[in-house]
């Protein structure tokens, strides 16, 4: 089942006289249950694509369909509703609120919702348990390690039970051991909770575990088949 589809999506930024082509006609499909890894150098357009696929931004040209709905037709409020119900985001810098404890941070996306705060609370506690932070629920971000903070962010991304989670360089601020643990956690969530993941990263090692692999270069997205494209990518990097 296709969750999100992009058709010839371009994104152009105009900065005074210069124009930046961040995306040059990206077509892609995200299926339910995918564990997609997109690699590519810095500035190649990975974040831009992720924001557009995640209904946070709109393409300059082309179309994005979420559950078959064209997002170019939606207004800001409708986009927010899509993000609220279907999409979770994880960032390199965690973006937790420093005055709130782990559980309160996880519950942040439910703040605007009506309904039983107790139910959300229970769900938040379960999610923190799931990411291995049961004991540290009431700690502030400043009392947590980088890996623990990212676990909180993962739980927060899952609080509204989204179909798909976008992670932008989720291990970028973590040492490799902690980073591996975070990736493993996402893999488990993919396998056991059937969550769809799209992970954007510099780290090519992650390609090994991906169900679908892509490379982003100069605003173009290409599918990697193991023997051919990866090599090309590596050639470029070592040159």
């Amino acid at each position: 089942m296709t969750l999100i589809e992009s058709k010839k999506v371009t994104k152009v930024y105009k900065l005074g006289m210069t124009t930046v082509h961040a995306l040059r006609g990206v077509s892609s499909q995200i299926e339910k249950g995918d564990f997609i890894v997109i690699v590519g150098p810095s500035g190649s357009g990975k974040s831009t694509l992720m924001h557009i696929l995640g209904a946070l931004d709109k393409p300059s040209e082309g179309e994005v369909l979420i559950d078959g709905k064209k997002i170019s037709k939606l207004d800001e409020w409708e986009l927010a509703m899509i993000r609220r119900k279907k999409i979770g985001f994880i960032f390199q810098t965690f973006n937790l609120i420093p005055t709130l404890n782990a559980l309160e941070n996880v519950l942040i996306p439910t703040e605007p919702l009506d309904g039983e705060q107790e139910d959300y609370r229970e769900r938040g506690e379960n999610l923190l348990d799931l990411v291995g932070l049961k004991e540290r629920m009431h700690h502030k971000p400043s009392e947590l390690s980088g890996g623990e903070r990212q676990r909180v962010a993962i739980a927060r991304a899952l609080i509204n039970d989204p179909e798909i989670v976008f992670a932008d360089e989720p291990t970028g601020n973590l040492d490799s051991l902690t980073g591996d643990k975070i990736i493993n956690l996402m893999l488990n969530l993919n396998k056991e909770e059937k969550k769809t993941f799209v992970i954007v990263t510099h780290n090519q090692d992650l390609l090994k575990i991906a169900s679908k692999k892509f490379i982003m270069k100069d605003g173009e997205l290409s599918k990697i088949d193991r023997n051919h494209r990866v090599r090309k990518f590596t050639e470029k990097r070592t040159k």
Binding site: G54, L56, E76, W77, A80, M81, R83, R84, K85, I87, G88, F89, F91, N95, I108, P109, E111, P112, R156, A157, N160
Partner: peptide, 9 residues
């Protein structure tokens, strides 16, 4: 990040 999490304006 709040908006990414589904907060409206």
């Amino acid at each position: 990040s709040l908006k990414a999490g589904g907060w409206t304006n």
